[in-house]
Design a binder for these strands. Structure first.
Lengths: 229, 229
DNA sequence: CAGCGTGCCTGACATATGTCAGATTTTAAC
DNA sequence: GTTAAAATCTGACATATGTCAGGCACGCTG
């Protein structure tokens, strides 16, 4: 195809996901899906409430109504549940992607951020919390996959920031901006009691205005004083 | 005294700390202090590396060189260690206080934030990480104390933001600004791999410039469109 | 009804963990 | 050197946990 956005890097390319174990204790695939959903739903609530380590398989069984022995017909082990949850909630592809949004030059920075925060805070609230809180409990290889994905996100963001900033010099500090934006994704989820008092849309508007101003200011700063490469 | 800063609210007032257990298995107080230090030092590293729940008393004993039975002469239980660490690292009074800094009207917002982030990121890095990560493992009453202290911080910050913004209307959204600033305290600690590539002072300057711009923009926004009370 | 396949559950194993009683060693004073 | 106080350690208890083997019940086919 020759008529799409020209040489934008492929932002949608193979994302690393966490490898879910295969099981074949139970044949009926619909049943497996249904039970897995029960299990994951219950586990998510418990993980968010008590943390991964403090949640026992017995808790999850009680919460989901699945028997303590049977649960191993549907998931391989406790870590497998976490993996499946993160695949659903953190690595989901149906939620807007910040670098991609930024690539659309018709949108102002503030509009980009407003759309992004609105959707991310609505759709990925629990995923964000789970991801931030349970990194220490993940298997080494899963943690590595998370890091890779984050790394790629930051890189893509840096590319887009340069694109938007015109002739900003190459500077390590651009990464700081990208990291700040990624960090802000966790703002509403982590400060969740705030959103009980304040309508979500108000937060979205306010924070995206502030964040856009911050980004512009920081880009300015880098242009004005191009110190580090 | 009549010549201090006039009616600034007492920002230094009784901070709630977590209640440490008293023990009297060992008489020599210096020894107790020393052993406790060993224990807490080892525990901190382990808690940050593996998380509170995944760290066992045996790990802490191995790391600190204190015997598994003796450790209970110096700390009451695993949660007591966490409490002591947070009292040292999170509730420390020797580190600059943001509302207090803001009360000094001679400093620009950017200067205030630069001073604050510089010191907070240098001195409270581990405390911040520990606090954010181990909230779910704390005893209910300790969690309550943490919340209270945070609540007070936000309130003090709101007061100072109003003071600085001149005639900004009373608006719930001011809390969002305060929360954003508190949240940013965790930026460098949580994105710690960043700081391995980028000098700390560069981060301080860049983020405080950006954050100051964001705060101003958000105050503007609230003044321009005074919707919520 | 018998026979079988599929999903479910009782019950338990092996290990890990927080905690500590009580024996043992060290220290210091005479 | 004797002795008593103080600090440290061995060893263990009670419990909790992840995991699963092997038996059970139910529905389907003939």
């Amino acid at each position: 195809m020759t008529n799409g956005k020209p040489e934008t890097p492929d932002l949608q390319s193979a994302e690393p996901m966490l490898a879910e174990a295969e099981l074949n204790g139970v044949r009926n695939e619909d049943l497996v899906r249904q039970r897995r959903e029960q299990i994951c739903d219950a586990a998510l609530e418990l993980f968010l409430m008590k943390g991964f380590a403090a949640t026992t398989i017995r808790d999850i069984c009680a919460g989901s109504g699945v028997n303590q022995a049977s649960i191993y017909d549907y998931i391989a082990n406790k870590n497998d549940i976490l993996r499946r949850l993160l695949n659903q909630l953190w690595f989901r592809r149906d939620v807007v992607n910040l670098p991609e949004l930024m690539a659309n030059q018709d949108l102002s920075m503030q509009e980009v951020l407003a759309r992004y925060f609105r959707e991310a805070w609505a759709m990925k609230r629990k995923g964000t919390l789970l991801a931030y809180r349970s990194v220490p409990h993940m298997q080494a290889e899963d943690r590595k996959a998370m890091r890779m994905r984050e790394r790629k996100l930051i890189e893509d963001l840096c590319v887009q920031l340069h694109r938007r900033a015109g002739n900003m010099p190459d500077d390590k500090r651009v990464e700081v901006i990208a990291n700040l934006l990624v960090f802000l994704t966790a703002f509403a989820p982590m400060r969740d009691w705030l959103t009980r008092d304040i309508p979500n849309e108000d937060m979205v508007q306010l924070i995206s205005a502030g964040a856009a101003a911050a980004v512009e200011k920081m880009i300015d700063e880098i242009c004005k004083d191009p110190a580090n490469g």
